[in-house]
Design a protein around this nucleic acid. Structure first.
Length: 225
DNA sequence: GTCCAGGGCCTAC
DNA sequence: GTAGGCCATGGA
């Protein structure tokens, strides 16, 4: 099973996803933090609250009292944590780049990645999502769905590390931004739609490719990353 | 009422 | 370097 074959099959089945749903690069970054371990629908409510408050701007956001942020991001869950994380991201861009998001995202990719990872609340998946969807760099974000899907397909070991899986995927798909962006979105949609629910497993568009489950086996979506 | 969603931090081994 | 606990609202 070649990964590009899987990609084309998912694309035929689900159609283009056109991620990321955001008007600006900073809004994308905000959404990436708000959707951590959270449905996008709930994260989006928080994004809209911030937008109404005029806070989808690093300098404005960085100046906002955390108590106000906590109220606005409440629908996204983990609201105290996420308010802190948004502030740390906004302050970094405001302090180090005078709020110039483009200047921040224009840094050399590996340096930008390390810088993102140094920001409180930005882990590997969030950093790689920002690199791919906001900075247009060829980094493939690996989430819990992707890990589980590839394991069930017998492509990778269950306990593979984040970096190992990212490397595996990046070595086996076309180095093309549209492919990266769509494939990642399609894997999330596939995971959300089928993997967690056993009854739907048979209808999964890749069930014939799935060595585990696919029939009587238990769906094993992890509850943790 | 129960389960869980597009992670990451902290702590203990 | 990694396993486990923790964070929390909203919808099914």
């Amino acid at each position: 099973m070649k990964l590009m074959e899987l990609y084309r099959r998912l694309l035929r089945h689900f159609g283009r996803q056109n991620w990321w749903p955001a008007r600006t690069r900073f809004e994308m970054m905000v959404g990436a933090i708000l959707t951590q371990r959270t449905k996008w629908e709930n994260a989006e409510r928080a994004v809209k609250n911030l937008e109404k408050a005029g806070l989808l701007d690093p300098v404005a956001l960085a100046r906002t009292p955390i108590e106000k942020l906590e109220k606005l991001v409440r629908p996204a869950g983990f609201y105290k944590l996420k308010a802190r994380r948004l502030l740390s991201l906004a302050k970094h861009i405001a302090d180090e780049y005078q709020g110039d998001v483009d200047a921040f995202l224009s840094r050399p990719p590996e340096e930008l990645r390390n810088e993102l990872l140094s920001i409180y609340g930005v882990g590997k998946e969030t950093a790689d999502s920002i690199l791919l969807y906001a900075a247009d760099k060829l980094y493939f974000p690996v989430d819990a769905y992707t890990k589980q899907i590839f394991h069930r397909m017998g492509l990778t070991p269950k306990n593979i590390s984040y970096e190992q899986l990212r490397s595996f995927i990046e070595k086996n798909i076309d180095r093309n931004l549209a492919v990266y962006k769509e494939f990642r979105a399609l894997l999330v949609v596939l995971g959300k739609t089928y993997c967690r629910k056993n009854p739907l497993c048979q209808k999964c568009p890749i069930s014939s490719l799935c060595r585990r489950g696919g029939g009587g086996g238990k769906a094993e979506m992890p509850t943790k990353g």
